[in-house]
Design a protein around this nucleic acid. Structure first.
Lengths: 198, 198
DNA sequence: TGTACATCAGTGAACGCGCGTTCACTGATGTAC
DNA sequence: TGTACATCAGTGAACGCGCGTTCACTGATGTAC
C-alpha cells in the first residue's frame, strides 16, 4: 500500500516494523532495508529516521523483537496445551514448538537471532526452556549430576541445531512426516540424556 | 602483499582463495568480496573473472571448501587420537572437534555453512559423524530403537547448536573452562541418549 | 638458434545498482492566548 | 471562537560507498617452424 491519504502517516514507526516483519518473512534479513521499507509504506527514506534514530540497526532489532515475541508466544501456547503435571511432556512441547516456529518462519527468525539486544524478558525463548528444565529439577526428574544451566543449554543447542539442520542444507525439503519423526527422535534422545528414566 | 614482480601472477586462483580464507577468518562472509580480494592480491578485479567465471559465488564456494577440508581434517585427527577400540570415545571426540573448529574459526565456518555444494566427499563433517554412529551401531552400542540416521542427525544438531550457542549471543565470552565443561555435559547427554549404558 | 604468432593473463575504465544517511526544506497539527 | 505560532512529521534531492560485472585493450609467454 504505497499510497497514503493523509500527509502525516499516523504511526509510521509501527508501519515500518510491520513492513519489516513482512519483508523478513519472505526474504530474511537481506530483504530488510530502510529504503525498501520506506517505499513499501509509501514514505521517503528520510522519514524513517524520525522514528529510528539508530537507523537500520534499530529497525532490525525491532523486527527481531516481534519474532522473539511470536516465538515465545508459540512456545507458551504449546506448553500450556500439555497437562499441567506432565513436566516431561511440557519440556518436550517447548522444544518442539521452537523447531516448529523456525520451520514456518525461518526468514524472520534469522533476524531475531542476529539482532538481539535481549531487552524483553517476556520474549526470551531460552528463558522459557530454562523454566521447563527448572520445573523438571524441582520435581526430581533431572538426572543426578546434571546441572540446570548445562541442561538448558544442551536442550537449546539440540533444538536450535535441529532447526538449522531442517531449514538449511539438503534436508530443507524433507517430507513433513519424516521431519516430525526426526524431531521426535531427537527429543527422545535429549529426554533420555537429561531425565530420570521411569 | 599488493605488489607483484611479474606481470603474470603464477597462480592467481589459489592466491584469491587464500586471500578469501584469510579475509573470512577475521570478518566472516561479509569480508569476502571480489573487489577486495583482488586488491589484496594486487590485481585488478576483472582479472579474477578469468579464474572464477561464476563470480563471487564460485569464490565463496571455494573458500568454503577449504574450511570444510580443515574441519574434516581436525575431526579425523581428534578421532585418531583416541584408542581404536573406544568407539564411544571416538564418537565424542568427533563432536568435540566440531565445536573446537567452530570456536577457533567461526568466521570461515560461516562461509562453509552458507556456500556448500557438497562436492567433496572427503570434506563432509556430517559424513564423519555418521561414520562414528555407524561404528557404534556395528558393535551394538546404539540403543534399541535408535536409527542410525536419526542418531547422526541428532548428534549433528546438538553439536552444531552448541557451537552456535558458544560463538553467538551472550555466551561468546564464556571462560574457556566453563565452556569446555558445557561441551562435556552436552556430549554426556547425547551419549546417554544414544548409547547403551554399560 | 631465431623469430612470428597464437594464446593466455592481465589492465583500467566504466556500468548500474541499491544501500545508508544527511540536509535544508515545507506541510500539517494542535496549543496558548 | 478565532488566530498566531511553535512543534512535529513529512519531502526530495543529493552524498559517497563498495559492490559485482563487462569490455576493449595490452603485455607476457611459449610453441611451431
Amino acid at each position: 500500500m504505497p499510497a497514503r491519504d493523509r500527509y502525516h502517516h499516523g504511526d509510521l514507526r509501527a508501519a515500518l516494523v510491520t513492513a519489516g516483519v513482512a519483508a523478513a518473512r519472505d526474504g530474511g534479513e537481506a530483504a530488510v532495508s530502510l529504503t525498501r521499507l520506506a517505499g513499501a509504506v509509501g514514505v521517503s527514506p528520510s522519514a524513517a529516521y524520525r522514528h529510528f534514530a539508530g537507523g537500520i540497526d534499530e529497525l532490525l532489532v525491532a523486527v527481531g523483537d516481534v519474532a522473539r515475541r511470536e516465538l515465545a508466544d508459540l512456545v507458551r501456547r504449546r506448553v500450556d496445551a500439555v497437562t499441567e503435571g506432565d513436566h516431561v511432556g511440557r519440556f518436550r512441547a517447548s522444544g518442539a514448538a521452537y523447531v516448529e516456529y523456525v520451520l514456518t518462519e525461518h526468514g524472520i527468525f534469522e533476524v531475531a537471532c542476529r539482532h538481539d539486544r535481549g531487552r524483553d524478558p517476556e520474549a526470551d525463548p531460552f528463558a522459557l526452556l530454562q523454566e521447563r528444565i527448572d520445573r523438571l529439577a524441582e520435581v526430581g526428574l533431572l538426572r543426578d549430576g546434571v546441572g540446570r544451566d548445562e541442561a538448558a543449554m544442551t536442550a537449546w543447542s539440540a533444538v536450535h541445531g535441529l532447526a538449522v539442520l531442517l531449514t538449511e542444507g539438503p534436508l530443507q525439503r524433507l517430507p513433513a512426516a519424516r521431519r516430525d519423526a526426526l524431531v521426535d527422535a531427537a527429543l527422545d534422545t535429549v529426554e533420555r540424556g537429561l531425565c530420570v528414566q521411569v
